[in-house]
Lab assay of single mutants.
Amino acid sequence: MDPFVVLVLCLSCLLLLSIWRQSSGRGKLPPGPTPLPVIGNILQIDIKDVSKSLTNLSKIYGPVFTLYFGLERMVVLHGYEVVKEALIDLGEEFSGRGHFPLAERANRGFGIVFSNGKRWKEIRRFSLMTLRNFGMGKRSIEDRVQEEARCLVEELRKTKASPCDPTFILGCAPCNVICSIIFQKRFDYKDQQFLNLMEKLNENIRIVSTPWIQICNNFPTIIDYFPGTHNKLLKNLAFMESDILEKVKEHQESMDINNPRDFIDCFLIKMEKEKQNQQSEFTIENLVITAADLLGAGTETTSTTLRYALLLLLKHPEVTAKVQEEIERVIGRNRSPCMQDRGHMPYTDAVVHEVQRYIDLIPTSLPHAVTCDVKFRNYLIPKGTTILTSLTSVLHDNKEFPNPEMFDPRHFLDEGGNFKKSNYFMPFSAGKRICVGEGLARMELFLFLTFILQNFNLKSLIDPKDLDTTPVVNGFASVPPFYQLCFIPV
């Protein structure tokens, strides 16, 4: 058959498939802009700032609406009420993970971030239990974070109060905490193996944040037939998995079943207990991918939040002064901060919360999916439909947070200066898919920041009023603009 005829037939089939998918069930789905064949609503979305586009569309179609990214149908949730109703009140029905062709290629359905069903539930339950087990290797997770915080302070001392970009050092600290939990080992910041790991993690975040990856996920045929950065992403992930597998083999040879040292040991012990169960989800494949998931999810998000926190503290020296006064009063100079201190430091706690609220790190979270046909607000959402959640619409709700575009710790303080919780605080998402490392991340943010401010004054290279804190939105995360500062020993 003539190649031209084959091409026309293929394009015609794709067009018909697109029209059929977009028209099927439209009477039951939430409203939304009319999609174009094949490309859907992509032309109506700013790929570099999806969150802003969703906010604009919500003003037209309401808090629940339908979009098509290519052939992929998505239902968008915008605003606290619908997000709570879906992710919390109907948590089980909305607990699936959205379709990610690239991740599915890399992870093969294993791990904790992109798995679904029984596998996801069992691996998540085990990971939560293990991360909360403060007795691994007779050292609590808090001990590990405190140790890394001391190392971080010593690295900052080496800058000798000269101007520096904190990106690298602030990236090393949370990565080392995860390494300590998974591998029972922290690395020197100049260790070549550690630097290679950091390089792969950072490069992957840069790649994932590009519009090209959005295109690959919406048109998965590209993955096999086109060159691009997605190939580098898959190569980096394969490198990390190979490295983790080597460490798993080392653990198998040296493990003491009665004295687990780290996450890998705990997983291997669980595998041993379930070795007679042919349906067990505790396999080497799941261990390797879960460890890679924890490394990827637990490094860049925390380091970016820390980097943004220091920029905001530079911009608002009056806030920094209040935090340091609270540190001096509650902790002093002669001991290290600990998590028990947080309950006695409402202002510092409010500042950490406000940093996370203000920066809105992951504006749309990772997409969910419905696990069955769901009736939601008089609409029928078919099983498997991807759910896109606007966390921006919750964290920047102007009824809950007056002047949401302003950095103001009073958003989390009552009139008496006591810490005030808010149900709208969802930087880790909400419901059954809430970030498994939430507790660890909150511990790291509090301890790293208090250790830094206990030991250093922060000095800006320019007038604080002239510092730009506008986030650089890159399609996946909101990151701070480049800046330098000086760490002046107190």
Rank of each mutant, 00 (worst) to 15 (best):
F4P: 00
V5W: 10
L7A: 12
V8A: 13
L16E: 00
P37H: 01
N41Y: 00
I42T: 09
V50R: 07
K52S: 08
L54D: 01
L57P: 01
Y61C: 01
Y68D: 10
F69R: 09
G70C: 05
E72M: 04
E72N: 10
R73W: 02
L77S: 00
I88M: 10
L90K: 13
E92K: 07
E93M: 10
H99F: 12
A103M: 14
G111R: 03
K121D: 14
K121L: 10
M129Q: 15
G135S: 14
R150P: 02
L152Q: 01
E154V: 09
L156H: 01
A161W: 07
C164W: 05
F168Q: 12
I169V: 13
I169R: 05
P174V: 15
V177N: 02
I178Y: 03
S180G: 10
I182H: 00
Q184S: 15
Q184N: 15
D188R: 10
Y189D: 03
Q193I: 11
F194L: 14
M198E: 05
E203C: 07
I207R: 05
S209D: 06
W212F: 06
I215C: 09
I215Y: 12
N217S: 09
P220H: 06
N231A: 11
N231Q: 14
N231S: 10
F239A: 15
F239H: 13
L245H: 09
L245A: 14
K247E: 11
K249H: 10
Q252D: 05
Q252Y: 10
Q252M: 09
I257T: 14
D265Q: 02
D265G: 02
F267M: 05
I269L: 12
M271P: 01
E272R: 11
Q276Y: 14
Q276H: 15
S280R: 07
F282M: 07
N286F: 00
A291I: 14
A297P: 05
G298D: 01
T299D: 02
S303G: 11
S303T: 10
A309D: 00
L312A: 04
L312S: 02
L313Y: 00
E318S: 11
T320L: 12
V330G: 04
V330E: 13
S336I: 12
R342W: 09
D349Y: 07
V352Y: 04
H353A: 10
E354H: 01
I359C: 15
D360G: 05
P367K: 07
C372E: 11
K375A: 10
I381R: 00
I387Y: 00
L391R: 01
V394A: 06
H396Q: 07
D397V: 01
D397K: 00
K399M: 12
E400P: 04
F407G: 00
D408Q: 06
L413V: 06
L413S: 03
G416H: 15
K421G: 11
N423A: 15
F425Y: 09
F425E: 02
P427R: 01
F428S: 01
S429K: 01
A430C: 13
K432R: 15
L440P: 04
N455E: 11
L458W: 03
I462E: 15
F476K: 07
P481M: 10
I488R: 08
